[in-house]
């Protein structure tokens, strides 16, 4: 190849990079820059003698220790709620995805119908759906009535304004984020591998554990991340279905620090702590369970 040809060749190879430029520019302007602004704000100090919401640039690292001391409980609770939500969504979403992708393989109509049902919640607004859960879980609602009739709930108990309601609402709202990636993964699963498992003395359960589940791990990984990350930062379910005392999540605190207390450095510090905590957890998780194919 001549020099000119080689130059022509590599120029064609580089053409693709121009297409990602708009995306990079967009993210730099609306993500990287705001994160830097937030990071700077989290170190601001109050203007001496200034009013509410008056801050000036500084390097006030004590903002971080302050918010951690004040709000470590809601922070931990957020991760606990997010974890329970993720596990619940996995336990509900995996069987649904398996049913649609593996058991109903070839039954196009049933598959399509169930997929629409999985996605259907997205057709209604997030806030409206959460509001509806408030009614479902209310004291004179169907769920509480049934549970009390079956003596599974003491007569004076409530479901609204409890941790159960918050986790239930989040599980419902994030379920499609769990189900769809697992479905997409299981749909590509070679059914002949399941036959090979049963041919090689594995019971249906063993075949699932040794063949199907390991092969669907990329889907499970994507689904759990897509559920856990937004759940950890959620504040709509917590504020609509919670009680603002022992169900408070970190998203609510950030929201009230920012909009009500106008304590921008604290809100920014909390947001940054949340971001870093999620990043560390996710990286540890992916390192532990991630597959090479995904990374």
């Amino acid at each position: 190849m001549s020099t000119a040809e080689r130059r022509q060749h590599s120029r064609q190879g580089r053409l693709g990079y121009w297409f990602v430029l708009p995306g990079f520019a967009f993210l730099a302007l609306f993500f990287a820059l705001p994160v830097l602004v937030m990071l700077a704000t989290s170190l601001f100090a109050p203007v001496p003698g200034g009013g509410v919401g008056a801050f000036q640039p500084a390097l006030e690292f004590s903002n971080y220790t302050e918010v951690l001391v004040l709000y470590w409980v809601p922070l931990l609770r957020s991760f606990a709620f997010a974890l329970i939500t993720t596990v619940a969504a996995l336990l509900i979403g995996y069987p649904i995805a398996y049913l649609v992708a593996v058991r109903l393989r070839g039954h196009r109509l049933a598959q399509g119908l169930l997929l629409v049902l999985i996605i259907a919640p997205f057709f209604a607004s997030f806030i409206l759906r959460t509001q509806a859960w408030k009614i479902i879980l209310s004291d004179d609602g169907l769920v509480v009535g049934a549970l009390k009739a079956l003596s599974l709930m003491p007569p004076g108990a409530h479901l609204t304004a409890t941790a159960v309601a918050v986790v239930a609402g989040m599980t419902y709202n994030f379920l499609p984020f769990m189900t769809l990636p697992i479905f997409a993964n299981l749909e590509r699963l070679d059914a002949r591998l399941i036959e090979a498992g049963s041919d090689l003395y594995a019971s249906p359960w063993e075949t699932f554990r040794k063949v199907t589940l390991p092969l669907s791990m990329p889907g499970v990984l994507a689904g759990t991340l897509l559920t856990f990350i937004p759940a950890a930062g959620d504040y709509i379910n917590a504020s609509l279905l919670g009680n603002n005392r022992n169900t408070t999540m970190i998203g609510q605190i950030i929201e009230s620090r920012f909009f009500q207390a106008a304590d921008y450095p604290q809100a920014a510090a909390l947001a940054f702590v949340l971001m870093v905590a999620i990043l560390i957890l996710v990286m540890a998780y992916v390192r532990r369970f991630g597959t090479k194919e995904l990374l």
Binding site: R192, L193, A196, G197, D199
Partner: peptide
């Protein structure tokens, strides 16, 4: 099996 059906993982 015709497709071998080896476990890829």
């Amino acid at each position: 099996f015709q497709s071998y059906a080896l476990f890829p993982h």
